[in-house]
Simulated scan of single mutants.
Amino acid sequence: MASTYTDKQSSPLLRVPAEIRIIIWTHVLGGETFSIHCWRRYTPFGFASRIIQKKRNFLALLATSRQVYSETRLLPFQFNAFRFKHQSSFLSFLAHFATDQQMAIRNVELVTWMARHMVDGEGWVLGRVEECFPVTRFGGLRRVNVEVRMNGCETDCVRGDCLGCGGSEVGVGEEERRVREWFEGKCERVEVGFERVMA
Rank of each mutant, 00 (worst) to 15 (best):
T112L: 14
T112K: 04
T112F: 01
W113E: 12
A115Q: 07
R116G: 08
H117Q: 11
M118L: 14
M118C: 02
M118E: 02
D120F: 05
W124M: 12
V125S: 15
V125A: 13
V125H: 14
L126T: 05
L126H: 13
G127F: 12
R128N: 11
R128M: 12
R128K: 14
V129I: 15
V129W: 00
V129L: 14
E130H: 03
E131P: 10
C132W: 02
F133Y: 09
V135A: 06
V135R: 01
R137H: 09
G139Y: 02
G139N: 08
G139M: 04
L141T: 02
R143Y: 13
E147V: 08
V148Q: 01
M150C: 14
M150V: 12
M150A: 08
G152Q: 05
G152S: 02
G152M: 02
E154A: 05
D156H: 09
D156K: 00
R159G: 15
R159C: 07
G160R: 06
C162N: 05
G166F: 04
E169F: 00
V170D: 05
V170T: 14
G171S: 12
G171F: 05
G173L: 00
G173T: 01
E176H: 06
R178N: 11
R180Y: 00
R180S: 08
F183Y: 06
F183Q: 10
E184D: 04
E184S: 14
E184R: 15
G185W: 01
G185C: 06
K186P: 01
K186T: 00
C187G: 02
